[in-house]
Amino acid sequence: MAENNSSLLDVHDLKLHFRASAGIVQAVDGVNFQLNRNEAVVVLGESGCGKTSLAKALLRLLPRNVAEYSGEVYLGGEELMGLTDEEYRKQIRWVRMSMVPQAAMNALNPVLRVGDQVAEPMMIHAGIKKEEALAQARDMFSRVGVSADFLHRYAFELSGGMRQRVAIAMSLVTLPDLVVLDEPTSALDVLTQANIFNLLKRIKKEFEVSFILITHDIATSSELADRVAVMYAGQIVEVGDAESFFSAPLHPYAQKLMASVPRLRGDQELEFIIGKPPSLIDLPTGCRFAARCPRRFEKCDQDPPVFDMGNRRIVKCWLYEGN
């Protein structure tokens, strides 16, 4: 595989807060991470920790009730947050960075033939003529393993796995550098899941694309991960390469999370995390995991900084101060 170690994405202190009746929801609250070309990073975290909001912040797909949207995002060295919405729409979204949204397979347009849906982003965002776009859609269908006969079908005529392939094809037609996949397989059966991961692995090689894979499914996330980022209550609390992370996670939350993953074989006890995450409206001032942490100590009343462990590994926990 061609190794290209130049940095593709750099995210600094990214914030996306929403206004709600009960207060400000700090869904993405100072996120930092970095991704190389042709690399896949998995963002792991439990329901409601802000994963989808992070994807929306990266793609600037913002709802109306945004209270704060700030930070720095560099894509291939270019700063994105300074772009106007118009510039962002023309130059970035779909063109260089695309997304397979959560539940995409159920969100395909029911009255458009799926071939036309795949052709559409090319016509709109790359100004390609319809015939040419349809030809490319046909090519993309074969690459994601959907028979060309299906170009003329409607979404309801396809199985869940086929619809998900169509959604993946849509995200790839403009040949972006980066694709964000939000829970691409959580509604699918194991065999279909395995098929989709085979496909994503092949696409990663073939298109030299980078992936951000958002999921709460730790076991299957390892099918694609070069790197792993763990999200808790709006923040990234650990990032590391897949090898080190899956064999020995550092953050106490990540350790507990790994211990809760059922294994097919072996007989280690499963653990669970007592209590629930803090409300994103009313966050504690210290470490956000402290209330549930088995290893907390006095220092944890203060917000821990991000400690650099070397080897592109970072962890936001006082245990690693002066490691």
Partner: peptide, 17 residues
């Protein structure tokens, strides 16, 4: 075969499905 265990080696192989 299709059921995954959390293991970094998974990313380097294709599964037989």
């Amino acid at each position: 075969t299709a059921t995954s265990e959390p293991d970094a080696a998974n990313a380097r192989i294709y599964k037989e499905v």
